[in-house]
């Protein structure tokens, strides 16, 4: 029988649960969110802990912001068993608060740093690869298909960059959108929006064509290097990069 601890699909709930388990010195076999389908060999345990937001401040105070950020990035990853990785990373962080980030010989530390890096790399790449289309109401709309849940990180980036524009970023893989109304960012489920109603603005196609012709022109034929391009701009992102989608 495996003991599976269940949290309410959000970071605060997860951190409160992990904190509780660490305090009580309980070693979970796994930790899963509440959409988990248990098998006959699993015993799911729901503790109904309070979702106390102070947990973030507590972690940052006891450790530091850098360590908290790593935990947050692991949480955003699509890594299997990421909750258990966070549990063991925190366990070690409390044990070695001053040197945890240097202890790359510990498997869980090395893995945690690797996952956090992957997430931050993907967020960074997409800051460049996002392609907004202008809708007929001047709202900017972009579709993305990231491996990790980097939507909120991206929305924060564009909020700083385009504070006076309305925009929507649509994570096709997770079926969620980030909306920005020139004040705040909202995350909503795609079912709450009638996406069929969205219409491109009149000169949107013209702008896209202008960009595509710039893209075609700027490459130097004598230096053509397909492999190098693919390394930097993996094919999995091409679908929503307008200058690339036709090459698929």
């Amino acid at each position: 029988m495996s003991n599976i601890y269940i949290y309410n699909n959000n970071l605060i709930s997860l951190l409160n649960l992990v904190d509780f388990l660490l305090q009580k010195k309980i070693k979970p076999d796994n930790i899963k969110d509440n959409s988990f389908n248990a098998s006959l060999l699993d015993r799911t345990i729901i503790l109904n802990l309070k979702e106390d937001e102070n947990i973030i401040g507590k972690i940052i105070n006891k450790l530091n912001a850098k360590i908290f950020n790593i935990i947050y990035y692991i949480y955003l990853s699509n890594q299997e068993n990421k909750e258990l990785i966070i549990y063991y990373f925190l366990l070690n962080a409390y044990k070695y608060p001053d040197k945890i980030l240097a202890l790359r010989n510990l498997r869980c530390v090395n893995l945690s740093l690797k996952i956090a890096k992957q997430v931050s790399n993907e967020a960074h790449k997409l800051k460049g690869f996002v392609r907004f289309k202008e809708l007929d109401n001047k709202v900017l709309y972009a579709k993305i298909n990231p491996d990790n849940n980097v939507l909120f990180l991206l929305a924060k980036h564009f909020k700083r960059r385009l504070p006076h524009e309305y925009f929507m970023i649509h994570d096709i893989n997770r079926k969620i959108l980030a909306l920005y109304d020139k004040k705040e960012i909202y995350l909503i489920n795609e079912n709450n929006l009638d996406l069929k109603k969205l219409k491109e603005s009149e000169n949107e196609k013209e702008m896209e064509n202008l960009w595509k012709s710039f893209y075609q022109t700027i490459g130097i034929k004598e230096r053509k290097n397909e492999k190098c391009r693919m390394n930097f701009m993996p094919k999995k992102y091409w679908q929503y990069i307008i200058e690339m989608s036709e090459e698929l």
Binding site: K127, G128, K224, R229, F232, I241, M244
Partner: peptide, 15 residues
């Protein structure tokens, strides 16, 4: 840190 927005057919960054 700079951001690359695309990569041309020659593999060079377009920012």
């Amino acid at each position: 840190s700079g951001i690359c927005h695309s990569f041309a057919s020659d593999g060079r960054c377009i920012s």
